[in-house]
Design a protein around this nucleic acid. Structure first.
Length: 449
RNA sequence: GACCCUAUGGUCUAGCGGUUAGGACACCACCCUUUCACGGUGGGAGCCCGGGUUCGAUUCCCGGUAGGGUCGCCA
């Protein structure tokens, strides 16, 4: 039988980066083995459920490219789903839980207590055969020693996580439970429940947790804990996916940058590490740069235009060839799309604000005649393109007896307001003679010397 | 408090009874260069501690320490 795995998030309004990785590992295992990836929404806590919260999860998985073979089609709990084991929202599966609880009750494996129903948990240690961690003998804690039984049905009739999780895995024929290590201790309860239902528990694979960069545990409030920090932060999904693959899993051959297909081919449970990993933002950023540099033109333009729009800059107000030419000078020079508006905003506005420190350094009296000479050389250039402008600048520098940089810096500052950016000659060409002249003139007027 | 998991440079990791302990990110220096980025070259930096086992432990065992997790009518 082909493996059937599932990602079973609770709709809390956000998708934790660790949850995203759990989903990814499940997806990878399913794709690697030709198995089935199921998405199940564990919305038993009616108080904090909403379609919006479910959509956050669905959209997050879609952004990452983790398509599910079975599961909801939309965030509507009562809506349609795909697969033969639905519904895939626990809120729609109440009868199953009720029926199972009654079966347990009738067989004396559970009992009523203060209006709730408690499961009769065994007192002997339970051995968990974990595919990642190995055999784990889970003994009772002192609290459990006092009362090993646990509630499976609340006094208000609502089933509890341990119960529904097991019943659904059982009824959905889940063969491998790949989840965070925070569930390892709970697994004893789950195994006991499976046994009470008379079936063999699935295989378990508990994956280590993701910690903050400083080694502390990652909680909801930590920056970077939510997937939206990356979706909204200008990251590429392929970079995030690649990075997540490397956190807690290793191809064992020093490969770092790998395509999704490559990982699918090589991913397997035994190579999952047993220890927690710290989230290394810098390394993610490196991968982001790698993927950003090799983006295809169409996708690059689309993402770039979107990034500008988000920053309030409507690039559509400019001629398409101009926008494309402008963006071409930026490709491979920045990593995060969220950086782009600041990096190349000068193409789309005439209000140039000079970097204060740089202005103090470059807009000094002795540079005024130099910049004037450069302006004249540009004006006299045979053509206003990168090649001709470079020659004009270098010859001017030579005539003035200074290095090219002496002219380059004030010129860049005058035209873009910044000290770094795209290739100067190319950005001048894209901007065009008129704008360049205007900006140099304006800068000259502000020298005040 | 009890129970469980874990421990290789700053970070992610490879390795493993005998290695000059390998790679990547980050960092430093230099080169390239109109800036930034890219690319090149070189460099600093590591087996948590203590006991065993062994001719020999980073590697196996035990203990400690540290970090993480679990003990809910949360999921």
């Amino acid at each position: 039988m082909k493996p059937r795995v599932r990602f079973a998030p609770s709709p809390t309004g956000y998708l934790h980066i660790g949850g995203a990785r759990t989903a990814l590992f499940n997806w990878l295992y399913a794709r690697h083995t030709g198995g089935t990836f199921i998405l199940r929404i564990e919305d038993t806590d009616a108080a904090r459920n909403s379609q919006e919260a479910v959509d956050v999860i669905l959209n997050g998985l879609r952004w990452l490219g983790l398509d599910w073979d079975e599961g909801p089609l939309t965030g509507d709990a009562t809506g349609a789903g795909k697969g033969n084991c639905g519904p895939y929202f626990q809120s729609q599966r109440k009868e199953n839980y009720q029926r199972r609880v009654e079966a347990l009750l009738s067989r004396g494996l559970a009992y009523e207590h203060e209006g709730a129903v408690k499961f009769k948990m065994q007192r002997e240690p339970i051995t968990i055969h974990d595919l990642v961690v190995g055999d784990v003998v889970r003994k009772l804690t002192d609290r459990e020693e006092a009362d090993p039984d646990f509630v499976i049905l609340r006094s208000d009739g609502q089933p509890v996580f341990h119960l529904v999780n097991v019943i659904d895995d059982l009824e959905m024929d889940v063969t491998h439970v790949i989840r965070g290590e925070d569930h390892l201790s709970n697994t004893a309860k789950h195994i006991a429940l499976f046994q009470a239902f008379g079936v063999k528990p699935p295989h378990y694979a508990h994956i280590p947790l993701i910690l903050n960069g400083d080694g502390t545990k990652m909680s909801k409030r930590d920056t970077g804990a939510s997937l939206t920090a990356y979706t909204e932060g200008g990251f590429l999904p392929e970079a995030v996916v690649n990075y997540l693959c490397l956190l807690g899993w290793s191809p064992k051959d020093n490969r770092e940058k790998m395509s999704r297909d490559e990982v699918v081919e090589r991913f397997d449970l035994p190579q999952i590490l047993r220890h927690n990993a710290r989230f290394d933002y810098e390394k993610l950023l490196w991968l982001q740069g790698e993927y950003a540099r090799e983006l295809g033109d169409d996708r690059f333009y689309e993402l770039a235009v979107h990034a500008f729009a988000k920053a309030g800059v409507n690039t559509n107000a400019f001629p398409l060839p101009y926008v494309k030419a402008a963006l071409d000078t930026c490709k491979g020079k920045f990593k995060l799309f969220s950086e782009l508006p600041a990096y190349a905003g000068f193409y789309f506005t005439d209000k140039i604000e000079y970097d204060v420190e740089a202005a103090k350094k470059d807009f000094v009296p002795e540079n005024k005649p130099r910049l004037e000479k450069l302006r004249d050389a540009f004006a006299a250039a045979p053509a206003f393109n990168a090649g001709a402008l470079e020659i004009a600048l270098k010859e001017t520098a030579k005539a003035l007896g200074v290095k090219a940089g002496v002219l380059v810096h004030p010129c860049r500052l005058a035209v873009t307001g910044k000290t770094s950016g795209p290739s100067l000659y190319h950005l001048l060409e894209v901007l065009g003679k008129e704008k360049v002249m205007q900006r140099i003139e304006k800068a000259l007027a502000g020298f005040g010397g």
